[in-house]
């Protein structure tokens, strides 16, 4: 399977830019997740790669071959790109087997080429081959759509929010099955989604699209722990911000002296801490600060506390803790930060 390389891709619609100067490469056999809110341009990116739309400028290469530029636009059927649409888009007039073999040559279609193998790959029983799409659940439809896209051996696989129409339980299960099938097929794939958990758990690398620009692209851990901007930090997960002073590898803020990740900054900074980094104890430990519990929200597997640090400027601090020992609202607790934190240079006020 070949890789994908995109350079300076720009696309606008009716004067409004949808994608602006996007560049990215995908290595062979990897899955990259593109995370973006609705309207961020992530679906447009996929449609440009698939060939359903023409770019205004920039280049797309699949396996080294130029397929789209401001002068060239190779037709979608000649690109060898597999596409899994938001709701599977199985052909309602064809059986599961006929759907899977749809993109194959006539002789291979007749011979039901690889149907059993592909069904097994996506974790469905072979007996499903004869069923109609209407007889499948949403998750099963998505798996068949994946098998269909993989059948012709595409150079690249595009997944357009493939799990968004599924309910929570089915989503996790289908996600795992799809990820396993893609790994087993050794396919190069791009997944676009608006779901942070999905992007972080499935992508070997994760890119974030914001307003048509690729804000950051890195390994999921790096994206979560060291987002390049406060906005990105908020988008990728929950975040708590404190004003602070950076001195060398340390930063001083309401939570005490914390160690910094990434390149050192100096002077006034904004410190970003993930709520699960804040440890809550009933008794003081070295380096901890005292706080009062204002509010508790219970989620089952964990709980979120809203706290006020004693002696600090008024404002809530959010901490996420295991739900085994939840302090009462109004009680005194001690907070300590585990791991490194990120600091952003304060925006220059006008």
């Amino acid at each position: 399977m070949a890789n994908l390389s995109i350079q300076n891709l720009t696309k606008s619609f009716g004067g409004a830019p949808l994608l602006h100067d996007v560049s990215l490469t995908v290595d062979p056999g990897t899955l990259i997740a593109i995370l973006g809110a609705s309207g961020s341009g992530k679906t447009t990116l996929l449609r440009l790669i698939a060939g359903f739309e023409r770019p205004d400028s920039g280049e797309i290469r699949i396996g080294g071959e130029l397929v789209a530029s401001d002068t060239i636009c190779k037709r979608p059927e000649l690109r060898g790109v597999g596409y899994v649409a938001q709701e599977g888009a199985l052909f309602p007039h064809l059986s599961v087997a006929d759907n899977i073999t749809f993109g194959l040559k006539r002789a291979e279609r007749r011979a039901r080429h690889r149907v059993a193998e592909l069904l097994e790959l996506v974790g469905l029983p072979g007996a499903y081959a004869k069923r109609g799409p209407q007889e499948l659940s949403g998750g099963e439809q998505q798996r068949v759509a994946l098998a269909r896209a993989l059948a012709p051996g595409p150079k690249l696989l595009l997944l357009d929010e493939p799990f968004s129409a599924l309910d929570a339980g089915l989503r996790a299960e289908t996600r795992e099955a799809v990820a396993a099938a893609i790994r087993a097929a050794g396919a190069t794939a791009i997944l676009v989604t608006h779901d942070q958990d999905e992007a972080l758990s499935m992508g070997q690398r994760v890119g974030v699209l914001q307003n048509g620009r690729l804000a950051q692209i890195s390994a999921p851990e790096a994206l979560y722990r060291q987002p390049v901007s406060p906005e990105l930090a908020n988008f990728v997960g929950a975040a708590v911000f404190f004003p602070g002073q950076a001195i060398g590898p340390k930063v001083i803020c309401a939570l005490g002296a914390l160690s910094l990740a990434g390149p050192a900054v100096h002077g006034s900074v904004e410190v970003m801490v993930r709520p699960e980094q804040i440890k809550v104890t009933n008794a003081p430990v070295p380096g901890s600060v005292r706080a009062i519990v204002n509010h508790v929200t219970f989620y089952g597997h964990d709980a979120v506390l809203r706290l006020a640090i004693v002696g600090a400027e008024p404002g809530d601090v959010t901490a996420r803790i295991f739900s085994q020992s939840i302090p009462e609202p109004g009680s005194d607790v001690w907070l300590a930060v585990e791991g490194d934190v990120v600091a952003y240079a304060e925006p220059v006020s006008a």
């Binding site: 059927e77 888009a89 052909f91 269909r148 012709p152």
Partner: peptide, 22 residues
Amino acid sequence: DPALEETARSLGNSVGSVFLRV
């Protein structure tokens, strides 16, 4: 659903073939 025709094209079908098969 437009996704049906798009999927068929990404599976290697020309416009004429999309009309006949999908």
